[in-house]
Write a protein that binds this DNA or RNA. Sequence first.
DNA 1: AATTGCTGTCGAAGCGCTTCGACAGCCTAT
DNA 2: ATAGGCTGTCGAAGCGCTTCGACAGCAATT
Lengths: 337, 337
Amino acid sequence: MVTLAEVAQHAGVSASTVSYVLSGKRSISATTRQRVEQSIRDLGYHPNAGARALASNRSNIIALMIPLRTDMYVPVMMEIAIAVATTARMHGYDVLLLTGEEGPDAVRRVTGSGLADAMILMDVELEDERLPLLRGTDQPSVLIGLPADTTGLTCVDLDWSATGALCVEHLAGLGHRDIAVIGEAPAVYERHTGFAERTLDGLRSRARETGLRVLHRPCEGGYDAMAVTLARILDERPGTTGFVVQNESAVEPLLALLRQQGRAVPEDVSVVAICPDQVAVQASVRLTSVAIPAQEMGRHAVQHLVAKLDGRGSDEVVLIAPELTVRASSGPAPAAS
Amino acid sequence: MVTLAEVAQHAGVSASTVSYVLSGKRSISATTRQRVEQSIRDLGYHPNAGARALASNRSNIIALMIPLRTDMYVPVMMEIAIAVATTARMHGYDVLLLTGEEGPDAVRRVTGSGLADAMILMDVELEDERLPLLRGTDQPSVLIGLPADTTGLTCVDLDWSATGALCVEHLAGLGHRDIAVIGEAPAVYERHTGFAERTLDGLRSRARETGLRVLHRPCEGGYDAMAVTLARILDERPGTTGFVVQNESAVEPLLALLRQQGRAVPEDVSVVAICPDQVAVQASVRLTSVAIPAQEMGRHAVQHLVAKLDGRGSDEVVLIAPELTVRASSGPAPAAS
DNA sequence: AATTGCTGTCGAAGCGCTTCGACAGCCTAT
DNA sequence: ATAGGCTGTCGAAGCGCTTCGACAGCAATT
């Protein structure tokens, strides 16, 4: 293993000079710099991460806590994780992958050991038990998701409430009066995941303003669960002509079932999905949808974190404005019969 | 930040004693041990990762390289990543997430800097350019996936060739004579990803043995692409009664299209999928499928790596035997008309 | 000519841990 | 009684890096 000292010797300078060439924290003459850089290349030198971390008290690692459970939004999680990893690399950071499994202990461990310089938390619940720890440490962090109380925290998220409102507006504008919301699995609501509840709030309050009737039903993914849920909805509100779906794995089953029952999309019923664009485009009917900007959230989170680590940036809540793309699954409400 | 020295002082012993309590590398009397452990708890001590890495030349980190592209198997990747992370934690390791983006450079960087003690590579191509580097270093590694030449490497993978064979056998046993294979996107084959080609090999050679005719068509995911692909297949081989699908995002479109054309599953055509069980169960027809054992692969990979790091274990190729579960999408071939 | 202020480089200290050799104290076998 | 072997603990060295203060050399200012 090549060390700083060996590079220094090879280049005929002192170790500290090599260090300053690497960090740029003091000015170095052009000739010396070049000599050192050449030696680094010749010897194939890579700074030792542990030594660097010990001496500088910086690991150049960002910890990313992803949920262990895979009951929702797997592709979104993955996309965020990848965006975080690539963005972090662009800023010279590596990413440590933590699963939610350890819970608050993971926060303690990472903070205490100096393993990572900062953390990104995903899948934040409204009253998340990791938050007190985060507030009690000076380690920078960013949440992807919005807890109930955001004081002293930095959060990045899609504006779910506005997302819900946007879906309602779109359907209201098309003349629909009775709409059903196919939600995430019941467990997601039970554990008070912010995004699901906020979406619902947004939907409901805009529905109240526009005079729409809303029926909300959580739904496990899959065909069978969707069949049961749909039957119940149509039983309770036969006049339903609009659907908002916030559950990737219910989208295709819903479309299949509607088709099977002879309800044409978008002639008889309209469907608006809240899902990544890719899903909306690949569905059997090109879906009118509000995109979940996974990449953007990941990128934002890292950028905020890096700003904090550089001493810039402060606590703040960034809500990304939702965008609704009209495709082939929504249209005017059928004339009342 | 609490240090070893502070714990030592608090417990009234020397620093080295605390270290030995932590590592267990020398015997310590019960009373001393307890006193030290109590001090650790009292002070909330966590060993500093950088210092430990520097002194012991071990970071207790495993690097996981996941593919950047998301054109295939996202849930599988995610499941593997999570399995890797949880299993690694059980053995006292953390996981560093690297995206394929950096390519071979990432291997050099991690190896050179001592950031990680070992690596797991996913999405291995048949002639992967990272392999020479891996062979040229003494850093342990495990591949998830099988390159063309495995000498000097440890690999874990589903036995894709046997998987292909198994699908053919199942359909052959049901009397099907003409089968079509809906494959991954063309790009997957173009970059010579092992699993796709091996599956095809397994399919074809068993088809030869059992006298089946096989038509293979790569297919982008989604409804539109599937529609085109299916039309071509039925045009070329109208007598096709069996389908093998190795592309998650083509499964549901295929089922929808068959339904739409009045071909009943499994009465008229049989469908066998190669996908995670969850997908098979959630589809609109419960699918006969060969499961992709994502968790098992991740777990295996970590276990091998840990064995190597402990000085046990050696290079070896582990192929997981495929298992076909019969569900509702396959049945006897219709009588020839 | 003397002072001041840069710029570029160096030496040394120290980050918090692991680990090696030393050794005190005790028990067992001669 | 003595040598030898354990067991449990300690001190010190050192891992490879960053960073602080020092300072030599030179240019610009008085």
